[in-house]
């Protein structure tokens, strides 16, 4: 038996294994995406967002978010009611997130009783001046990237699988991303974003994980802009899942007059 003949099945195995690994990576990213963005069928949370710029100056945002999953891993609706700062208090914001088409976004400014749609072609733009992008808030669909498992590791003693993802279509916001996925909860504990030169540009960290109604939930998350400096910390409180939030909540009617049963004051 020649070396070549020996190598052939090995090569075959390698190819087969890598295909299997890729399938696993896709499945893993899907599970992770569902765990992070599609927990329960719907949910509400109060959010405190602390934005710290590179000079250490802090800004605070407080809002309440509602979410409804129309389809697991597919269309979703988001409703946001702002409390602070004062100049945006009572302002409401709604997103109809579509797995296929562009998201639709509307804003309601109560001081002028004005509902208006806002153009939403840039998912990488900042959400309320923070280091979180719209995509960080509502999720970048796993099918938009190619994924490969690159190894096992631990984050703070928790075993994780490391997945490397590259966007299917070129992006200006990042070239590759490494996700450190907790193998028991599928939650991403870290995400490292790199540019084309392989330089680390952004880091996502799951700071605190709590179990709410049997659903493991990242209740404190942080995004750090490694290049420019500055970070944003988001803390979730008052989380509730499976409230039975109706589809009609995500319409102009409720944009103008908030559903107090979920929003509270």
């Amino acid at each position: 038996m020649t070396i070549r003949m020996l190598l052939l099945p090995v090569l075959f195995l390698v190819v087969f294994a890598s295909v299997r690994a890729e399938l696993d990576a896709d499945e893993l990213m899907k599970q992770s995406h569902l765990a992070l963005y599609y927990a329960g069928d719907d949910g509400r949370t109060d959010v405190t967002m602390t934005i710290v710029n590179k000079r250490g100056k802090e800004r605070l945002r407080e809002f309440t978010m509602l979410r409804l999953d129309n389809e697991e891993g597919g269309d979703q609706k988001y409703y946001t009611y702002f409390r602070k700062p004062s100049d945006v208090s009572r302002l409401t914001f709604m997103v109809h997130k579509s797995a296929e088409a562009n998201d639709k976004r509307w804003i309601y400014v109560p001081s002028v009783d004005l509902v208006r749609p806002i153009s939403a072609d840039d998912k990488a733009s900042s959400f309320v001046n923070s280091h979180f992008t719209y995509e960080d808030v509502s999720g970048r669909h796993w099918s938009e990237d190619n994924h490969a498992i690159v190894g096992d590791s631990t984050v703070d003693g928790v075993p994780v699988v490391v997945v490397e993802s590259t966007p299917v279509e070129d992006l200006s916001s990042f070239t590759t991303r490494r996700t450190y996925i907790d193998t028991s909860t599928y939650l991403p504990l870290r995400e490292h974003y790199y540019d084309g030169d392989g330089t680390l540009i952004r880091v996502f960290t799951a700071e605190t994980i709590e179990t709410v109604s049997d659903i493991p939930t990242i209740t404190v998350r942080k995004i750090e802009d490694v290049q420019k400096g500055g970070h944003t910390i988001v803390a979730f409180t008052g989380i509730e899942y499976n409230l039975g939030i109706g589809d009609d909540i995500f319409t102009e009617r409720y944009l103008k007059a908030p559903p107090r049963e979920y929003i509270g004051r």
Partner: peptide
């Protein structure tokens, strides 16, 4: 009439 079209509103 108002809506999303032509990459904008």
């Amino acid at each position: 009439l108002r809506g999303t079209a032509l990459g904008g509103i």
